[in-house]
Design a protein around this nucleic acid. Structure first.
Lengths: 340, 340
DNA sequence: TTGTAGGCGTTATCAA
DNA sequence: TTGATAACGCCTACAA
């Protein structure tokens, strides 16, 4: 309950000077600064954030709006996501708020309310879709946000991402370099930005090698084991040409592919080569699959810190270029690819 | 960006009157009230929460401090918990904040900071232990909170709970009524308030029936399948008397008990009777176990709404008795108990 | 029924 | 280096 006023009276200084001293302004004598800090400690002073915010016009709160309840298989990941952002922002002295919207439809209303009441200074946006309406809304209203992902070539907002075009390209190119010409691609559901970008990389690699793009080899589904299983079975049970290699955009899908291949009597890497991208999620690890899977790697858990950092610093006035970053990924060879 | 001032100028009224009209005070003419509301809508007015908070001394934010990262098996439950509270509080126009503490040790510091900076109006506390330090701190500092559970007989704060003494009693009594005299009790880890209360109920039922309390039948462990498995095996592999019936304090433990009994060649209910409390969590359902398990039932998911409601209304000045509630539980007979 | 005045605690501006 | 003053937007006496 101690206020600046209490300290000022205690020391016979003006409130102004106390404020300046505590905020370590330049124009305060060293002695005063010291006395004030000591008094503050002694009186157990803690600034009233609400008052500070009224002056600065900022709430000190950043948030994430979750449009729906995460599914059971997502929830461990989501917890880590929350914990990572929470920790990241608290390092910057900000509070991170999770807001769960009730239905998918009114998500934008939630943003509008939080923005309108000046409750929240900025947002974290993840899993953008093409022409994401959240991004359009926030940009139009000049509300700061940081994006996990990329949706345009010259973003005018903070973001953090990996180079998903390169991921798609590298995975495909690795197979091409090992002589494969019939390469299937099992991707996430259309609409997501990163799904699109990985697809772009896949097609670019095919193009550069002069290989045809075949619709039948370009498969989609949710990022689950089931998708890998289902799409693989479909490919091998349908008429027409069969792939000699498969690109999976994540390890869950890769795991499903193994199950399917076993069912149709094919093995990795003898009959089919396989590469996949690894987010380094603990649920499916590439070396615990029947055959250790080669592929690109980038720990998604290392995104939370930079995301919090980028948004925080942007709110503090950092220039755009300092808060936009594409993190590198690596390619790890294991045993799932065979030359033809 | 519209403020009360804008509306007041727009209508030629005083800021005061506009404020009163918008807050539906009694002493405003119906016509003024209407005009003001219309103008507010037209100008898209939304109150600046920060300013309001400075006046009222309240932040409008309530929070939950999570002392550690929830384990993988807890995370689905935790998501529902967050979603439930989030939805519950937003119905009351409050923001619900999740705060993850980095280490268990500094949890109280997190509270102190949030309280000291007046960032948070009140807290949700769950899983209290005996003489919970969080409760002691918040009570000492007159910080409102709602407790999921009970720690004392005459709480002077809002809470919501089920009658865990009765749960322990009902489960045990059911077995006694079916002629069992050697009843084991597999409980959670000592320290938790509800673990203690269920134990009290167990012993009370034994007492009333004139049955001895046997240390060897009173087993503890985390609320997991593993506990049920481990403690059951231990009981049946040790010297001394064996129980004819077991009380499990939740369905996970019950599931583990089934596994153990199968391993030692006993079956439910022929060799052993079994009852358990069911929180109605989706992970282990009583009718999906090898034998449908009889026992007490109370959907824990129906706690989140009342918890949010109790804290909100308490913050709004509701009398204590309106925000303290013990929810009823039911007893459902299935097929896991046999008379002796 | 309405308006005036004061204050919540902090920071920024300007003058001393 | 310091202090007085105003302002942020709202709400609640008190007065008219």
């Amino acid at each position: 309950m101690t206020t600046l006023r209490d300290i000022s009276r205690h020391l016979g200084l003006s409130v102004t000077q106390v404020s300046r001293a505590l905020n370590n302004h330049e124009d305060v004598s060293e002695e005063t600064r010291k006395r004030v800090h000591e008094a503050a400690k002694e009186l157990n002073y803690q600034p009233n954030m609400i008052a500070r915010r009224l002056v600065t016009g900022r709430s000190g709160i950043v948030g994430f709006v979750q449009p729906r309840m995460p599914g059971p298989e997502e929830s461990v990941f989501f917890m880590h996501f929350l914990a990572g952002l929470s920790a990241g922002f608290s390092q910057h002295g900000r509070q991170f708020v999770l807001h769960m919207a009730d239905t998918e439809d009114d998500t934008l209303d939630v943003y509008a309310r939080l923005v309108g009441t000046r409750s929240i200074d900025g947002f974290v946006i993840t899993e953008p879709v093409m022409d994401d309406p959240r991004i359009a809304y926030l940009r139009k209203n000049d509300v700061p946000f940081v994006l996990h992902g990329q949706t345009m070539d010259q973003p005018d907002f903070p973001f953090f991402d990996i180079d998903n075009v390169a991921v798609g390209y590298d995975l495909t190119k690795h197979l091409i370099d090992h002589g494969h010409r019939d390469i299937a691609f099992i991707n996430g559901i259309e609409g997501s930005s990163y799904v699109h970008r990985r697809e772009v990389g896949y097609r670019r690699a095919l193009d550069e090698a002069g290989l045809p793009y075949r619709k039948a080899f370009d498969r989609r589904g949710p990022m689950s084991e089931n998708t890998g299983l289902l799409e693989t079975v479909r490919m091998f049970q349908s008429e027409g040409p069969k792939p000699t290699a498969i690109v999976a955009v994540n390890m869950r899908i890769a795991k499903g592919i193994f199950t399917a291949l076993e069912a149709v009597g094919l093995s990795v890497p003898n009959d089919i080569s396989l590469v996949a991208h690894d987010d380094l999620l603990p649920d499916v690890m590439p070396h615990k699959l029947p055959v250790a899977v080669s592929g690109t790697t980038s720990p998604i858990a290392e995104s939370w810190g930079p995301l919090a950092d980028h948004l925080s610093r942007f709110l503090d006035g950092a220039p755009l270029k300092d808060v936009q970053k594409i993190a590198p990924h690596t390619f790890i060879k294991r045993g799932s690819v065979r030359s033809t």
